[in-house]
Amino acid sequence: MNSEAFQSIILPWVGKVGGVMTAMRAVQTAHKHIPPDAITCAAKLFNLSIAEVRGIVSFYDDFTNAAQGDIRVRVCQAEACQAVGSRELSRHAEQAMGLSFGETSADGQFSLEKVFCLGLCAAAPAMLINDVPHSRFDADRFDALLDKAIAK
């Protein structure tokens, strides 16, 4: 895909406050990552250098170089979840999905990501499967929720 192909996604955000960020979010949502051509296109449309746009993209965890899976599992790693066993649960998640944190499965179906706080700390541990929150789960329920997400 060449640079022009991203115009329709990026152009609406030119001139908006924080437009580069919002444009990159739109690209990430549509393509599950930020392709290099999207960076080139944004640089041109926002009148920035490629290095500047790349700098913005690399700063934020939400923008990724490699494609995220269709099912994104984000497991909270922060203190409130640690207090109820998120470290063990995170290891379970890696085993159950056959992935390390930060990896996407070869078929592009799953990715497993770290996240630092989902604001569900009163019912920790917590995770997001795509944008749906789940909390107070154990290893068995993790497996069940994952199965349910696959079945969808």
């Binding site: 960020m21 919002t22 990159m24 979010r25 926002f46 913005i56 939400d62």
Partner: peptide, 28 residues
Amino acid sequence: IELFIGAGAYICGEESSLLNSLEGKRGE
């Protein structure tokens, strides 16, 4: 009022970093 969504950087809770981010820059 406009709603602006961050991009997964804890540091953007620091006010000056937040302002940079809101301007569409690295959240430094």
